[in-house]
């Protein structure tokens, strides 16, 4: 059967999922810290961490979806993504956050804060961007 949900929920946000950092260390998803992302990106030759500030949160095409507008990197490029309300983002210095933390906790058993305008999320870009 098919559904019309905008994005399928990935399995790795489930509490207890094993995540491998760039140096090979294994951690549970709920134990990840801001430094883990920063240090992993430092090791990576291709990926770079950017700071993406939440500028707007609007309703999406379907009731369970939201459109989040980010201001990405030093250039403050405007990027919109549509995700399910329970989709967690990692906020610098704070940890996992979603637009509907109750639902995230319900579905993934992952403790979450409420994602708000002004929050600065961890995002990735390619190092080799022109």
């Amino acid at each position: 059967s098919s559904s019309s949900s905008p994005v399928a929920l990935p399995p790795f946000f489930m509490r207890g999922s094993i995540i491998q950092l760039a140096d090979g260390e294994l951690k549970r998803v709920e134990d990840l810290k801001t430094e883990d992302f920063i240090q992993s990106a430092e090791i990576s030759s291709e990926l770079k961490i950017d700071s993406s500030t939440v500028e707007r949160i609007d309703s999406g095409q379907s009731p369970n979806a939201v459109v989040i507008q980010f201001s990405v990197g030093e250039l403050k490029a405007q990027v919109c993504v549509e995700v399910l309300v329970e989709y967690p983002f990692f906020v610098f210095g704070q940890g996992w956050s979603s637009c509907c933390p109750d639902r995230t906790t319900q579905l993934f058993e992952l403790s979450c804060a409420k994602l708000c305008v002004g929050d600065v999320c961890v995002s990735l870009t390619l190092r080799s961007l022109r």
Binding site: F37, S40, V72, Q78, V79
Partner: peptide, 25 residues
């Protein structure tokens, strides 16, 4: 007896959104 199960391991970067600025201007 319990058979050992292979536990999936996910790379760190799959948890982070790839936000690529559109190249305008």
């Amino acid at each position: 007896n319990v058979e050992p199960r292979s536990v999936p391991v996910f790379p760190w970067h799959s948890l982070v959104p790839f936000l690529e600025p559109s190249q305008s201007g």
